[in-house]
Every structure is written in structure tokens, then in C-alpha cells.
Nucleic acid binder design. Structure first.
Lengths: 170, 170
DNA sequence: CTGACTGTTTCGTGACTGTGAAGCAATGAC
DNA sequence: GTCATTGCTTCACAGTCACGAAACAGTCAG
């Protein structure tokens, strides 16, 4: 993953688009422009003119933050912990593999066959096992605002839910 | 809460201390100094000379990120005293080593094997000893609002509790 | 001795996984 | 329109295993 360099205010729209996808980005601010308000943890800015060293330092910092948290886009760490926003859930082995496959093609359709191969590399069990695991996975990740959509006779698709109102239960 | 302004590299020690406590900080970098590597989400830097507007913008951004998380991180003294907020507890040797390992990877999963190696560098005792010590550790640190979560078949994870309602009884 | 720390044994509970079957909903044949 | 087919959803159940928890015993410091 790389950090997108966005000229500000010239490429304002591009910044919005990147933010919507949770892509990390560095805003390059014109010398006489006011400092922008950052919208999330995966954004930073630097005032022009800036040295390549400074720009790289900020890009690295953004990526380091990306690793620690997650953006709009959920992140699955190798321990089977799925993080999205400030929340996380742990996934059991099979579900972690299924989700990894969905995450590889985040926002795109993954066929049932491909999913089954990811979930059970040594060979799939009964035909229904996949259905049940998708059901369980859905319920498990719902609190994170992540949704598995069905594309009938094609497969499944992972995306962010639109109910962004998450209430902390105290 | 306010963001501490730390001159770099002059106040290097102060920065370390602030970071250990999870305090937000802005590094003010001398003009000819290389860009620093940020240690967490609650830190940022700006190259001098900088306008007050730019500095304020970065401070606001840090605070916005701070709000998104609950940052306060417990600290373990070399004496085996664990502090979090205004409270503290003392930990016996084995538990202190276990907690140190969890704290090293605060918020991330630590495997049972890794924990056992930290707790008993000379070789682990019986298989269940770890379970029991985790249980005791949990009860000991609960009053501080620090929680050890289980990630089944993967390990344990240290984080701050989400129950923000802490009633002071004494 | 007393109490804190440590480790072991034992048992219970809950999590993970897979299976079978019932229920819905979209699709297509007639 | 009606009906059957197909594909997905959901529930209920059982086997296995990891972890939680209590009770007990040994060691050591004060």
C-alpha cells in the first residue's frame, strides 16, 4: 500500500474520494493556503515547499497508523483479529480464512468455490458448511459495521455497512 | 486536555516520558534536523519556523485522534507496580513478567507460548500454570480498568476496559 | 505461625466446527 | 398466474477442545 499525494486545494475532489475508500493520503498544501482539517487517522498534510525527506517521513507515519488501527476498510491481522474503527473482534480459524479471501477482493464478488478453497485448503466439508460459516461471520462482524452481501448465484461481497451510528454502551 | 509542545531534539527525554503516559504531544523540529519517527497516534511534528496557525491545526488534529480512541495506557514500573490513571497495584514477579509481555504488545494478541516464555524464561512449568496466572492477573488489574481479553486458540490481548463508569467507593 | 506467592489437579462451561432439515425468495417453465 | 427448481438463510443439534475457575498443596518471607 502506498500513500496518495494530493495537491490542496486543487485536488479537493480526489481527496474526498480517497477518504471515502479509506485510502491513506498526504495533502500537499499551497504555501499561502490555510491548514486543512483532517478527516481521519489516515490523512496528514505538509506545507509546500517541502523536502522529499519530510514527505516520506509523514507517509511512513500514516502507514504506521494504518497498521495499528484500521480505516474505513477493515484490517485482518495475522492473529485472526479483525479491526475496524476503534472496535475489533476475534475470528476463529475457518472464518478468518474466509474473511481474508473476502478482504483480498474488498468490494468485489468472490465466488463460493473460491471461498471454499480459501476456507478449507485441504478440501471442503459438506456443501452447507460454507453457508453456515458465512452466516456466523456476518453476525460476528456486524458490530464493526462490516457487511457481507450476497450476489445470487455469483458469490459474496464484502463492504462497509451504511449504519455508521455506533453507540458505546458504557 | 492540551497538547504538549516538545522541542526536538533538545527535549528528547520529555518526549519519551510523555509517550509512556500516553500524553498527546507535538514535536517542534529544528530547521536542519531530520524528520522524527512517530511512536504512536498521539504524536505529530512540525518543522520550525512554523506559524501559530499551522501549530494549532496540528494540535487539533492530534486531539481529534485522541478522542477517537481511549488512549490511556497502563504503565509498569521496574518494581512491579502497575499504574493506570490515579490507581495502582503491585504485581508479584511472575505476573509482572506476564503483564510486561502483554504491555509490549498493548492492544495486540500475544500467543500463549510467547507469554509462557516471558513469564518463565528458565522454562515453563505445567500447562495450566499460565491459565491460572492469567486468571489471577485479571482479578488483580480489574480495579484499574485494564482488561485481558482472550482470543481463543491464539492468545491474549491487553486493553483498557470499555466500562467507563467507574464508581469510587472508598 | 501466618500470609503471600506459586504450581497442580480436577471439573465445568462455553467456543468452534460440521451436519441435517426447515423456510424463503428469486428464477424460469408451463 | 401457477408451480417447481434452485440457491441461500436460518435453526437445532452433537462432538471436540480450549479455557475458566475452584480447591488444594508446597515454598518462602516476615
Amino acid at each position: 500500500m502506498d500513500v496518495a499525494r494530493v495537491f490542496w486545494p486543487k485536488e479537493q475532489d480526489r481527496r474526498t474520494a480517497l477518504a471515502a475508500q479509506g485510502m491513506p493520503r498526504l495533502l500537499l498544501i499551497d504555501a499561502d493556503e490555510a491548514a486543512p482539517t483532517l478527516v481521519d487517522c489516515f490523512e496528514d498534510w505538509v506545507r509546500l515547499p517541502a523536502s522529499e525527506g519530510d514527505i516520506n517521513a509523514r507517509c511512513s507515519a500514516i502507514l504506521a497508523r494504518t497498521a495499528g488501527h484500521s480505516s474505513e476498510r477493515p484490517v485482518l491481522d495475522p492473529d485472526g483479529v479483525l479491526r475496524c474503527g476503534s472496535e475489533w473482534v476475534s475470528l476463529p480459524p475457518v472464518e478468518a480464512r474466509l474473511l481474508a479471501a473476502l478482504l483480498d477482493r474488498f468490494g468485489a464478488v468472490v465466488s463460493r468455490d473460491a471461498l471454499a478453497r480459501s476456507g478449507w485448503p485441504a478440501g471442503a466439508p459438506g456443501r452447507n458448511a460454507l453457508d453456515v460459516h458465512v452466516l456466523r461471520l456476518r453476525r460476528r462482524i456486524a458490530p464493526l459495521g462490516v457487511v457481507i452481501k450476497t450476489v445470487r448465484s455469483r458469490g459474496y461481497l464484502l463492504e462497509r455497512g451504511h449504519a455508521l451510528l455506533v453507540v458505546e454502551s458504557a
